[in-house]
């Protein structure tokens, strides 16, 4: 099969769409996965710790 302009157009109009939908789905699952809630809450509040030194 020749790799022409039409091939690229078709690939981007079909597979490009599916890949973005699949990707959005993965992001949504990661964001709302219940087990992640704890680490997100920790990250949200963790920046307020006042000790201005690296942890060892």
């Amino acid at each position: 099969m020749d790799l022409t302009h039409e091939t690229l157009v078709e690939a981007s109009k079909t597979w490009g769409l599916f890949y973005l939908i699949a990707f959005s789905f993965c992001v949504l699952v990661y964001t709302f996965w219940p087990a992640n809630r704890k680490r997100f809450d920790r990250a949200k509040k963790g920046i307020f710790d006042e000790d201005d030194e690296p942890w060892t």
Partner: peptide, 27 residues
């Protein structure tokens, strides 16, 4: 996302929303 919560001394309204908008903006 760092200096706003620090200065306001309030955590970001929604951490999950910040993740969703990150991937939205990137892609």
């Amino acid at each position: 996302y760092y200096y706003l919560p620090k200065r306001a001394e309030r955590p970001i309204f929604s951490y999950r929303l910040s993740i969703l908008s990150f991937w939205g903006i990137t892609f």
